[in-house]
Design a protein around this nucleic acid. Structure first.
Length: 266
DNA sequence: AATGACCTATTGGGTGATGC
DNA sequence: GCATCACCCAATAGGTCATT
């Protein structure tokens, strides 16, 4: 079983992303080199940048709202400020349970807590919500569920968002059979690309400025990191070999260098 | 080559019982 | 009035396999 070390046949993309995370935070040059590779000019000096693995900001911001004097009021207002104008959930006097039920929590809706959009049930969302409005509601829900693999905060309202893949491609939402059926029944249009969900998270939910198409210096640079490095229309492509070839491993454990040998270009 | 169905592993979060 | 716990629901990613 131990005739060869695991790193010679590891196929887990999170493992590669974790090695990259380690490198970005090691030494002085790697983060700077990485930002150059994705054409992102930081507003802060690199030592002020923040680097995160599995970025679940929204989920944890929601949790933080429990510290408020009136969490339910804060949460309700936060969500309603981000709904399409045509969507009118039940008013405060109808109670918390009715509000949760409007968003599909029909089996066991809480009467005490405004529940996280992460838990909304697409099939149960109020039948008045159709088409584009339904699509936007679903994307708000998914914004709470997704966790971009690697996020670098590079200055006020500026960031790099990296989705890492090894063998599989970027996914589509919805994912379950039942939710796809609901999607079609509500006339919500094409399925949503995983990268579009990430753009929605930053640009429509977290209020980072939306870049104009083809902008050379967008507020948020979206990167698809995989074996091909081709990217998409507004998503910068980057390959594992390109990025690891640029990283210095001087201060890393020997295993890091051995792991990357087959990937790095000679 | 791309898509969809189905599967496993894992996680978050709400409820209600329990004990202090 | 609290933590803590088991339990349950609902979700995610990504793998395999069959189909197109």
């Amino acid at each position: 079983m131990t005739d060869r070390p695991y790193y010679t046949f590891n196929r887990e993309e999170r493992n590669l992303a974790a090695i990259l995370y380690h490198l970005l935070l090691s030494g002085e040059e790697n983060l700077k080199r990485f930002l150059e590779l994705v054409d992102h000019k930081p507003e802060w000096s690199v030592d002020k940048c923040e680097v995160y693995f599995e970025y679940a900001w929204l989920r944890d911001k929601w949790h933080l709202m429990d510290k408020e004097v009136n969490p339910n009021e804060v949460k309700r207002n936060w969500v309603e400020a981000r709904l399409p104008p045509s969507i009118k959930p039940p008013s405060v006097d109808k109670g918390i349970r009715a509000w949760n039920e409007f968003f599909g929590l029909t089996k066991k809706p809480s009467s005490k807590h405004i529940q996280s959009p992460a838990n909304w049930v697409l099939a149960g969302i109020h039948p008045s919500v159709q088409g584009n409005a339904f699509r936007k509601l679903a994307m708000l829900k998914w914004a709470f569920n997704i966790k971009p693999d690697l996020v670098i905060i590079t200055g006020d309202n500026r960031a790099v968002c990296v989705e890492a893949k090894v063998e599989s491609g970027a996914g589509k939402y919805p994912t379950s059979k039942s939710d796809k059926a609901v999607w079609k029944a509500r006339l919500a249009g094409e399925y949503i690309d995983q990268l579009d969900c990430q753009r929605n998270l930053f640009e429509r939910v977290l209020d980072y400025p939306v870049a104009s198409p083809g902008s050379p210096n967008p507020s948020v640079r979206f990167v698809l990191l995989d074996n091909e490095g081709k990217g998409q229309a507004v998503v910068k492509g980057l390959s594992w070999s390109a990025v690891f070839t640029e990283m210095k491993t001087l201060n890393s454990h020997a295993m890091v260098k051995k792991s990357l040998e087959p990937i790095v270009k000679a």
